[in-house]
Amino acid sequence: MTDENRRNKLKFRAWRRGFREMDLLIGSFADATLESLDAAGLDEFERLLNVPDWEVYAWLIGHEPVPPQHAGPVLDQLIAFRYAAQSG
Rank of each mutant, 00 (worst) to 15 (best):
L25V: 06
P65N: 07
V51S: 04
L25W: 10
R20V: 15
N8W: 12
D38P: 02
A85V: 04
A14H: 08
L48Q: 08
F45I: 08
K9M: 14
R16I: 08
K11E: 14
D43A: 10
E64K: 14
F19T: 14
F81E: 05
H63N: 15
P67I: 01
P65A: 03
N50Q: 14
K11D: 09
Y57T: 00
S28C: 05
Q69D: 10
F81C: 00
N50C: 11
T33M: 02
S28R: 07
L37W: 14
T2F: 11
S87Q: 10
L78W: 11
W59T: 02
D3W: 07
D3Y: 07
N8E: 15
R16W: 12
H70S: 04
Q86Y: 10
D31V: 04
N50L: 13
P67T: 01
G88R: 12
M1Y: 13
W54R: 07
G18C: 02
D43M: 10
A80Y: 02
L78D: 06
D31K: 03
S28H: 06
D76N: 00
D23I: 11
Q86A: 13
R20A: 15
E55C: 02
R20K: 15
R47N: 12
L25A: 03
L78M: 15
F12T: 09
A40K: 09
W54V: 09
I79P: 00
I79F: 01
L49N: 02
D31Q: 07
S87E: 13
V56E: 10
Y57N: 03
M22C: 12
E21A: 06
L78K: 04
S28E: 14
L48F: 10
Q69M: 02
A40H: 04
A39D: 15
L24N: 09
T33F: 04
L37T: 04
P67C: 00
M1G: 13
F19R: 06
V74Y: 04
N8C: 08
Y83T: 09
A58M: 03
I61L: 04
A71E: 09
L34C: 08
A84W: 14
A40L: 11
L25S: 06
N50T: 01
D38V: 05
L60K: 01
G62F: 06
L25R: 04
L75Y: 02
L10A: 09
R6H: 13
E64M: 10
D31A: 02
R6L: 15
I61G: 00
L48A: 06
S36V: 14
S36W: 13
Q77H: 10
F19M: 15
L34V: 13
G27M: 11
G41T: 06
A85H: 04
K11T: 12
P68F: 01
R7G: 01
I79W: 01
L75H: 01
G18I: 07
G72M: 06
R17E: 11
K11S: 11
